[in-house]
Structures are given as structure tokens and as C-alpha cells.
Design a protein around this nucleic acid. Structure first.
Lengths: 212, 212
DNA sequence: TAGATTGTTAATCGATTAACAATC
DNA sequence: TAGATTGTTAATCGATTAACAATC
């Protein structure tokens, strides 16, 4: 049972680096190159690959083309990844227009809200009334949603989504919701990240707290 | 030397839970309660506290009041945490209006951009021209910024900020920038988070990949 | 007091790194 | 071939957990 989230994140980063290398005309890459680019050790790069049976050539490194396309399959990037935006306030709308998505094969197919003002705004991507969400999800076989609703609505929305074929959400509200076996929640807690940064700045430069 | 980011994140979560408990009228809390709320083991809660010399009473648990105020000092929440928003596109503007911030003592004091249209829009928080950023930072002793500029501008902006008293940024652009000793970067990579979620959904339900 | 919970030590677990044989 | 790099094993490191004496 492999449940280490970090490996997958690293694979995704290796892939991004390799895609850029490829754009520069490079053909091969060594574990050393990827290690430098991503900031990990070469051993770890090789170990990560070997865990997923991604092999290279002794002496010759890895073929970028080959590795990228294997990673695509592994990470599900060979298919378009459709998502919906639940809650089209400022943050939701920012995500709808986020230009980092198309580049990596993520497609926002619809937004949902209940505020009539938002519903009438014209957007390149349809914003539908929240009451249509279950129907839409089933028809379009949506698996992933972003949760950008006000905090009090977050848990209720999760309960609704659990009844559909959505299997996970990225939660931007400040309540940290819990994952369960069949419904994954990834919390993007901006406040917490900022607090953490302040801590690291302030106390990392002062002395270290610790112990033992 | 204590460099474990996770401990700090957990402390912050314990604090949030306790503030809610306090609002409910509770006075004491046991490691068991916090463990349940945050989803970790009671041992870990006690260990985390003990690492920072946060003590309770054998048999009596921890006094919420006491612990919250000690955590406030530890996490720097006893002072207002001022931040600036660098790049006031959709995402930057969403952050400027993010109502999760005031509640946790984070204050957005200004935004910066170069687009005249954005500069003229009226916002409750001033949006200034990017050329005034260094002056503003020094005058207001800003330590933390969010980086919500288009990807190509991100690295350049970091280089500018490094020349000021800003000591760290939350980077929302899809390039993952590297931290250095005296300038911390926390990457909030939304795309990566979504990719990761797709992976977990798709392949966690299929079989597990592997190994040893 | 008896019972329950902390604080801490030792054991466990898992991830990363170092090292090196295999081999291109 | 000689040299360099992979793939993998064993060693290390660090974080989490279990256990329990101290004690309220």
C-alpha cells in the first residue's frame, strides 16, 4: 500500500521540468538534472521512478519523451481533467479564468452559484444555478470540484456532492474538512499558509525553540 | 534545530479548534479532544505541546484560555499580521476581499499592480502602482506578500522583493519558486493540487501501484 | 483514595540517503 | 575498454506512536 502523497507531487514536478526541457530541445535527462531542478537528491529521483517501474538506461539516463508520456498516463494527464467550480464569488471566478489550467490539461466546465447577480453575469464558462448541480454532475461525469463557497455553506455542500459521482474537492474555505475513504478533501488553507510563513520568518530568524 | 513545518501547522489547527471550543463555553481540553478534532493521535498532541513547553495539568487536561494565549504569542498572532497583494488580477482581488483574513488577524494593507484599469478601480483597500512598492514596503515594514502576478513576472518580482524587508511570499503562480535562507517561498500550486486529487481518486480506487 | 491524564522515554514506522554492483 | 549512470539494497534519519511512571 503506497499512500505517500509526496511521491506523486514530485512525479508531477519532474514531469513539468521535463516538459520544459523538451521544449528546449533536450532528449535525455539524468536523475541528477531532475534532482537539481526540483531540489531533491538524485537517489530520491531514481527511487521515485523505480517505485512506479519507470526505467531508464544505465549510463544513458532517461528519455524525456518516453518518461513524460508514461507519467502522463500515470498521473491521468492523458485525458482532459474536467472540474466544476462550486461557489462563484471572487475566488471562484478567479479560478474560472485561471490561465494555469488549460496549459496542464485541466478544464473548467461550469460554475455554480445561487446569487442571481452572479448567474446573470456573462462569463466564457456557464454559471448555473446551484439547484442544477446534481443533474449536471451526473450528465457530465464530473469527478472533481473546487469548493469556493462561504465557510458556513462548505460542509453542507460536501454532503450534497457526496451523493453524486464527485469523488473529491479542493476546499478553499477556512474550515478544514476531513477526507473519508470514498470522498477526498484537499484543503487549501490560505490563512494557515500565511500564518505559517509568518511563523517561519519570525521565529526561524530568532532562535530555535526546541528541545531534547 | 527544529524544522518540521507540520508541527506549526498542527499548533495552528489546535488553536483554531480551541477558539471554537471556547466560544462554546468550554474551559478545559484534553489531548484526546484535540486529537479527535484534528485527526491525529493524542500522543502527538502532547508531544507537540511539550516540544514548545506548553504544559497542562496531569489529570486536568489543558486550560483553553491559557493555551490559546500562549499559542498566540508563539505563532505571532498577538500582533496584527500585515500583508500586501502583489498583482491585482482576479485572484489578487479575491484575496484583497477574502473574509477569512480579518478573523485570524491578517490584514491586507495594500495591493500593487501596473495595469491602469485596475489602479483606477475603487477598492476598500488602496491599489498602488507597482513602482511605489519598495517605498511602501519600507515605510510600512511589510514582511509578507502574496504573489499573484502572471507566471512570467513571478521570478522578477521575487528578485525585487528580496531587496526590501519582505522576508517571504505566498506564491500562487504555477512556477514553483525556491526558498532560500533569507527569503521564504510557500508555493500554493492549485494545478498541482488538482492533479494530485485526480491521481488519488483515480488510482487509489484502482489498485495500488506497488512495491517491496 | 482510585481513576484519569499528562509528560516523556523507548519502540516503531516510514521516508530519504548513501553506497555500490550491474551494465550500457 | 574506461567511465558514468541506473536500479536497488542497506543504513540513516526523523517523525509518530505506544507505553507507562508521575501526579493531580
Amino acid at each position: 500500500m503506497n499512500s505517500n502523497q509526496e511521491v506523486i507531487r514530485r512525479l508531477s514536478r519532474y514531469r513539468n521540468v521535463m516538459r520544459k526541457m523538451k521544449a528546449l530541445g533536450l532528449i535525455k535527462v539524468f536523475s541528477d538534472n531532475l534532482a537539481d531542478a526540483v531540489g531533491v537528491s538524485p537517489s530520491l529521483v531514481r527511487k521515485d521512478f523505480s517505485m512506479f517501474n519507470l526505467t531508464g538506461n544505465k549510463r544513458g539516463g532517461y528519455r524525456i519523451d518516453d518518461l513524460v508520456s508514461k507519467l502522463n498516463v500515470l498521473l491521468g494527464k492523458d485525458k482532459k481533467q474536467k472540474i466544476i467550480i462550486v461557489g462563484c464569488g471572487k475566488l471562484g471566478q478567479a479560478l474560472m479564468n485561471h490561465n494555469g489550467f488549460p496549459r496542464v490539461g485541466i478544464r473548467v466546465v461550469a460554475g455554480f452559484d445561487s446569487d442571481p447577480e452572479v448567474l446573470n453575469s456573462e462569463a466564457p464558462i456557464p454559471i448555473l444555478h446551484i439547484k442544477k448541480i446534481r443533474e449536471f454532475i451526473e450528465e457530465n461525469q464530473i469527478r472533481v470540484a473546487t469548493l469556493t463557497v462561504p465557510e458556513p455553506a462548505a460542509q453542507g455542500m460536501v454532503d450534497t456532492l457526496k451523493k453524486t459521482c464527485v469523488k473529491g474537492v479542493i476546499n478553499f474555505s477556512p474550515v478544514s474538512l476531513k477526507s473519508s475513504e470514498d470522498f477526498l478533501v484537499h484543503n487549501m488553507n490560505i490563512e494557515q499558509e500565511i500564518e505559517n510563513l509568518f511563523y517561519n520568518i519570525h521565529f526561524a530568524e530568532t532562535t530555535v525553540v526546541k528541545v531534547q
